[in-house]
Amino acid sequence: MIEFATAWLGSLPGFMTPLLLASLGLLFCERAGVLNLGVEGVMALSAMTSAMVVLAGYSAWPAMALGAVAGALISLPFMMAVVVFRAPQIPAGLALVAVGLGASQAIGRDAAHKPFAGLQPLPWPEAFADLPVVGRLLFEQDGIVLLALVIAIIAAWGLFRTRYGLRLRAVGEDPATADAAGVDVQFYQFAAVLIGSLLIGLAGAYLSVGGSQIWTEGMVAGRGWIALALVVFAQWSPVRAIFGAVLFGGAEALIPRLQALGLELPVYFLSMTPYVLTIAVLLVISFSTRAKQAEPGFLGRAYIRQDR
């Protein structure tokens, strides 16, 4: 049992981190009122890009960074469409998914199924990792896991304790009032989606370079969509997003562990659990009026000054 817990907890950060990064990125977009459905596609492209960078002989960290940048670059047309041209955000986001998935397939064809050495665990003394239960959880993790947690804290601080965060939230809550207060609505939306897509890109890059250390088509496997639900679950709070990521990541991490136990469970049904769990969580959340009130008031809508 202890062995099971150690292994499960040890694998948890790997599952949790991409979800956390993606939902933090999305959280920035949504706090500024932009519903970015493109997460799945952006993650796919970034996972492919960073894998190709590593396969080209560069080390993991620059690969991660380039993956994040690729996420921002592919989001540019989406940003232009929704921020400047006020395009309806749902179809624009879907288009971003298509372009991201398509580009990752088309460009990354030759990089698929080639294992590589990606991120390595932080160099703690080896004895630490042998500690029961928490050893692998704490001392066999790479730097991005830590970085993601730090980013969550910084995001919370930035959103709720700085004037930039106040303005960004105001833009998503009530752009007319923000505009009246002299806040450049378009600038903040642009900035939010830019930061957001960098983080979403980082999440994608972590999937290949951090987690699997290989790139395959379709490896994002719905995590982008789960991130969307996770943001609702987190009530648009970065700190709550950590708990959400632990919950969803934990459930996901359970699947290979249960299989490793040799339980005779139908494998495909087991794989459904994250999706079923997500839908269940959305249903439960819908009963909370507090969670509903947490939604940014102007999410998904187009603002023009005339509407004020």
Binding site: A87, L94, A95, V99, L101, G102, A106, R109
Partner: peptide
Amino acid sequence: SEGIVLIIQGIILLTLVT
């Protein structure tokens, strides 16, 4: 690559809504 079709679909949709 088959991905090209997806890219083109994305382009059509994004252009249309823009």
